[in-house]
Simulated assay, not measured.
Amino acid sequence: MSKPHRIDTHHHLIPPRYRDYLETRGIQPGGIPLPKWTPAGSLKVMNRLGIRAAVLSVSTPGAWLDEPKLVRGLARELNDYTASVVAENPSRFGFFATLTLPDVDGAIAEAEHAFNNLGADGIVLIANTDGTYLHDPAFRPLLEYLNNRNAVVFVHPGELPAPPVDPIPSFAADFLLDTTRAAAGLVLSGAIEEFSRIRWILAHAGGFLPYVSYRVMLAMLRQEGRLAQAKAMLQRRTEVPKRMELFSRFWFDTALSSSPAAFPALLAVADPSRVLYGSDYPFAPARAIGFLNDVYEEQPLDRQLRRQIDHLNAEALFPRLAA
């Protein structure tokens, strides 16, 4: 069994005024009603589930509510509130700051404030904003800034730029595709290589990315006009590891993804030193997290890898939260 020293890198908060903003507009992240959340509630669940520390983040839609005049003030309010929660329990909480995309200038200014004045541990970016994904040239100045800061960036899915399909809640499938699109875009655009100092964390084990990684690799060859030579290239001993290395540059959290179906696919692609424990609380209720923790404990992992996933890998990213 794992020791109760987990560091949860996928742990949400819902500030009271933010709840009001979302409920007034009828927004249900992931297609489900907003769950209850308080700092005390998080700590209670963390103690129960063996989570020593959690890195807090605001889930989709972040600060962008289709109201450009609101976005900068809302992002500042969310980050100041989150920083106050961390200040109350600095050994138990860290946080990813919320930015203002698609307002790039505002995003850079808010990241500067969050890092320099609030002590943010990283940044959370929604995979797409109004259909624009993170690799888009419009967001390039922000990626340059985050690269220069050696930032940890948590990529969280949002609503797909497409209508939902009844009765499927978006958290069940669309969220996973959104993360996959964002990650594939970073790979195929070359951004993962150009901005190599950004530490990208992909939510929910990268969505479908591990499963479709070879398809994305073929898309790389097609981009290069080398698809006709793909079979010969991929038979070479060095070509497949070279291409797959791009996917292993990501960090992946295990939130809602520790099943015997998903976990082997993740470990086939990920660098073992870049797999992080995640819960998705409170959007995943405590009982569901407990069930998935039990499933995770049943995975045939050696002791060292389990310790890495539980806390050692996160401690390398967030030394402040090390025991």
Rank of each mutant, 00 (worst) to 15 (best):
T9M: 01
H12T: 13
L13R: 07
I14E: 07
R17P: 08
Y18E: 10
D20P: 10
R25I: 12
G26A: 12
I27P: 04
L34P: 04
L34N: 03
T38K: 08
T38Q: 09
S42E: 03
M46T: 02
N47E: 15
R48G: 09
R52G: 09
A53L: 11
A53N: 09
V58T: 09
S59M: 11
A63S: 06
D66Y: 14
P68N: 12
G73A: 00
A75D: 00
R76L: 13
T82S: 14
T82H: 11
N89W: 07
F93R: 10
F96E: 11
A97C: 04
T100Q: 07
P102N: 01
G106H: 08
A107H: 04
I108H: 00
A114V: 02
F115M: 06
A120N: 07
A120S: 10
A120R: 05
V124G: 06
N128H: 04
Y133A: 05
P137W: 05
E144D: 09
Y145Q: 04
L146K: 02
L146M: 02
N147S: 06
N148A: 15
R149G: 06
A151L: 01
F154D: 00
H156V: 09
P157H: 02
P157N: 02
A162P: 00
P164N: 00
V165W: 12
I168S: 03
L176N: 12
R181S: 13
G185K: 00
L188F: 01
S189N: 03
G190S: 01
G190T: 00
S196Q: 12
S196A: 10
F208Q: 11
F208A: 15
P210Y: 15
V212P: 05
A219H: 08
L221F: 02
L221A: 02
G225P: 04
R226D: 03
A228H: 15
Q229R: 15
Q229H: 14
A230R: 04
L246N: 06
S248R: 04
S248Y: 01
R249H: 11
W251E: 14
W251K: 11
S258N: 11
S259G: 07
A262L: 15
F263A: 05
L266M: 04
A268H: 10
A268D: 11
A270R: 11
A270M: 11
R274I: 06
L276F: 12
G278F: 00
S279K: 13
D280I: 08
I289F: 03
I289E: 04
L292H: 10
N293H: 14
V295D: 01
Y296H: 09
E298G: 13
R303W: 05
Q304H: 15
R307V: 11
I309D: 11
N313V: 12
A323S: 15
